[in-house]
Each structure stands twice: as structure tokens, then as C-alpha cells.
């Protein structure tokens, strides 16, 4: 379970999170929608401790992320994150990209790591690209590799930060399909997205984010068909 409790965070004078609270249960898929620059991505970075917070707290399986003495490297093994910019390691092959953390962080042997990585890469449809360098892949393939790389660590949680925003339109589908598959398999996911169709179809709950606050959170049906807050309705009418 991920518990976000009244989290505030500023970059200099700019307060990007103004007291965000949200709970995500195991097995749940929560989509976070809202305009650009509303703090959605920052929230994801805070969940796995890539960004410090100013106040409030975030608990992942009961462990306080920003407490002193929390082993962030250990915590992060359990939380996969995929970014908007796919962030492949360009000097490593697809297979090496996927096995790096397995070997260095989890201490698996090369053979063990390869077996796990190949399974994950086949899962996302990259079984024939193992020896290829990321520079030779399309954006969609690189993004699927990034998903496989995160999944290889067998995390309990997956965070997706606008993973289709930097892709050519014709490549968006393949990445969304991979995420649908994951959701179906019961992965706990927080998905920051501009893909309203995806949010509506796959999520258990949808959170509407604006100006550093969650204005409304509920089932897709509630949010998309009968939003309670006028801000939500305005936003939805602008994107749908």
C-alpha cells in the first residue's frame, strides 16, 4: 500500500505540491490526470525518494520514504518507475540494460539475470532485440524496454510518468497495450497520463490534479461522467 499524507514540496519559491493526500491499495491502478506543470510528475519522483519533500509523509508498505535511515536503494527495488523520456542506457544492449540492476543491485549471476531479463523482454515483445543497442530501437520499443527493465526487478509497484507523451502517435498504442497487460496481471500502478481513454478503461480510480492539489478522486465513471468539481469538468471538456 502507498500512503501519501499531506505532502508539500517547493522548488524555490514555487510550491508544486500543496498538501497532497492519496492512498493506493495493492492491486489497484490509479491514473493521475491534469494539466502540464500541475505537479503530477513531481509526486511520482517523491514516492520513490528521487525528490525530497518539505513536509507530510509518504509510506510504502509501512516504510516512511523520507525518514532518516530509510534505505532508499532498497526501497527503490520494490518500486519500478518509467519516465516520459525513455532513458535507455545507450552504451548497453537491450539485454544488458535489463540485467544491469539485477546483477549489481540484486546480486544475481549473469545466467540468472539473463533468464529473468529475457522473460520480461519477451513479455513486452522485444525478445528478438536482445543484442541490439537502444539507439537502433524506435521510441516505442525503447519505452517498452524501460518497462521490462523496471519489471525485471519484480517490483510490487509501478509508477508511470507520462510514458507515451514523447512518442510518435503511431507508437503510443504498443506501449499502452503493454501497460494494459500489466494492469490485467494485477500490478499496482500509479499512472500519470494524458491518455484519457486509457485512464478511463484501465484505472480503478482516477485522480484529477490541479495546481499542486488533488481536486477530485474517484472511479473513472464518476470522474468522467459526473465530476463533482467544476475544475474537473472544465479540464475534461478541454481535453475530451
Amino acid at each position: 500500500m502507498i500512503e501519501i499524507d499531506n505532502v508539500r514540496k517547493s522548488f524555490g519559491a514555487l510550491e508544486v505540491l500543496k498538501g497532497v493526500s492519496m492512498t493506493v491499495q495493492r492491486g489497484e491502478v490509479v491514473s493521475v490526470i491534469g494539466g502540464s506543470g500541475s505537479g503530477k510528475s513531481t509526486l511520482l519522483m517523491c514516492i520513490n525518494g528521487l525528490e525530497p519533500i518539505d513536509s507530510g509523509r509518504i509510506l510504502v508498505d509501512g516504510v516512511e520514504v523520507h525518514a532518516k535511515g530509510t534505505d532508499l536503494n532498497k526501497l527503490r527495488r520494490n518500486i519500478g518507475i518509467v519516465f516520459q523520456q525513455w532513458n535507455a542506457f545507450p552504451h548497453l544492449t537491450v539485454l544488458e540494460n535489463t540485467t544491469l540492476a539485477l546483477r549489481k543491485v540484486l546480486g544475481k549471476s549473469r545466467d540468472e539475470a539473463n533468464a529473468i531479463a529475457i522473460k520480461q523482454l519477451e513479455h513486452v515483445g522485444l525478445g528478438d532485440k536482445l543484442k541490439v543497442f537502444p539507439g537502433r530501437l524506435s521510441g516505442g520499443q525503447q519505452q517498452r524496454m524501460a518497462i521490462a527493465r523496471a519489471l525485471a526487478m519484480s517490483p510490487n509497484y509501478m509508477l508511470f510518468d507520462e510514458v507515451t507523451s514523447a512518442l510518435d502517435p503511431q507508437l503510443v498504442g504498443e506501449v499502452l497495450d503493454t501497460m494494459r497487460l500489466l494492469a490485467k496481471e494485477g500490478m499496482t500502478m500509479i499512472v500519470v497520463t494524458h491518455e484519457m481513454g486509457f485512464a478511463r478503461e484501465v484505472s480503478n480510480r482516477v485522480a484529477f490534479f490541479k495546481d499542486g492539489l488533488i481536486h477530485e478522486i474517484g472511479t473513472p465513471k464518476q470522474i468522467f461522467e459526473a465530476p463533482e468539481r467544476p475544475e474537473t469538468a472544465t479540464f475534461l471538456s478541454s481535453v475530451l
Binding site: 520513490n48 528521487l50 519516465f83 542506457f89 544491469l100 540492476a101 524501460a146 526487478m153
Partner: peptide, 11 residues
């Protein structure tokens, strides 16, 4: 961003 990706894997 590349370094963040590495750290996010637990490196």
C-alpha cells in the same frame, strides 16, 4: 534523467 533512471532501479 539517465542518472535518475539508474538510481530508480536501486543502483
Amino acid at each position: 534523467t539517465t542518472r535518475r533512471a539508474a538510481r530508480s532501479l536501486g543502483l
